[in-house]
Amino acid sequence: MHLATYLGLLEDSEKQLTDAFEHVAEKHRDEPDIEQICQKFSAWSRNHHGQILGFVEKYLEEQEDEPDKLKRDLFARNRSGALALLRDLHDLWLLTQQVQLCWTVIRQAALGLRDEELKACATECAARTKRQTDWLLGRVKQAAPQTLLVAE
């Protein structure tokens, strides 16, 4: 059974997302809307991460391999200039997709296992992840033309 492995992947991804939102909040605090909302999203991901830990514990003995880690070069920390905000939002969006897909996979497993608790957790967290994605997409769409066409 590879459930624990996948939970590990999800746990790692939510952790990355927590940190990434925090990082973006701090880095782009001069934008009127970024800091507060990204801190909120960071808190959501932190909460998801906490919820996963319980299930990692529960399915630990069944773990066969080391949990997979996301190996991506997201968030070049010293990105700057007009593109930086757009690129950072872009990377956040990718990360939320990674998390979302993990939740979908986990929820399927929960259905098979009839683990009601895990199913409820996956449903709730996936819905909140979608709200993160939706916001990021809206913000990316808004920033894109100005960044690509006008900013120097």
């Binding site: 001069d30 934008e31 009127p32 809307d33 007009a82 809206g138 769409k141 808004q142 894109a144 033309p145 100005q146 960044t147 006008v150 900013a151 120097e152």
Partner: peptide
């Protein structure tokens, strides 16, 4: 109409960063 029309605070921010 590719995104909602720009809001005042964002207009000022674009002025600040130099793209308006």
């Amino acid at each position: 109409h590719w995104a909602p029309p720009t809001h005042a605070m964002q207009i000022w921010r674009y002025c600040e960063t130099g793209s308006i």
